[in-house]
């Protein structure tokens, strides 16, 4: 069989390889679920969100930030949403294995990682995740 006829298989192998790399990256991140990454941070009163962003991240500024603002208006003041610029705090981004922007990490009051959202996460999704992480439903 000529190489030309094998072009589809070669293409599938290339795409499969890239998918595998992305999957491995994602799995390395999912390992963090249920763990406390920042052991030096003390227990908080409520779940919190770490929002990883960057200066050139258009989706961050045009979609994720409006969603976080919409979420924040309905939350108790004890719920913290902390914006992290990956350029300014690369160590923190590495500890959370941030591979794409925006990334939002939902932490419970014990600072345990409960959810990691790669890409845009809606206010509805984040609110449901905060509730699952211990946010009182009435908040």
């Amino acid at each position: 069989m000529s190489l030309l006829a094998l072009a589809p298989l070669i293409a599938i192998a290339v795409v499969g390889g890239v998918a595998l790399v992305l999957r491995v990256q994602r799995n390395r991140q999912l390992v963090l679920l249920g763990q406390v990454v920042e052991t030096h941070v003390s227990r908080r009163a409520a779940p919190s969100i770490l929002y990883f962003t960057g200066a050139n991240c258009t989706i961050c500024h045009t979609a994720q930030e409006p969603a976080l603002r919409a979420l924040a208006t309905g939350l108790d003041a004890s719920v913290q949403i902390r914006e992290v610029d990956v350029a300014s705090e690369p160590g923190l981004a590495r500890r959370y294995r941030v591979m794409s922007l925006p990334t939002t990490v939902v932490l419970d009051a014990e600072q345990t990682v409960r959810h990691i959202n790669v890409g845009f996460a809606t206010a509805t999704t984040l609110r449901a995740q905060l509730i699952e992480a211990g946010l009182p439903v009435a908040a």
Binding site: V15, V18, A19, L22, G54, A55, N56, C57, T58, I59, H61, V86, V98, M99, S100, L101, V118, G119
Partner: peptide, 20 residues
Amino acid sequence: CVGCIVYAQLVKLGVLPLSR
């Protein structure tokens, strides 16, 4: 949308010539 994933990766790396 694999292109969407690549988009996010390139924005993170600052490769895309997008600026605001």
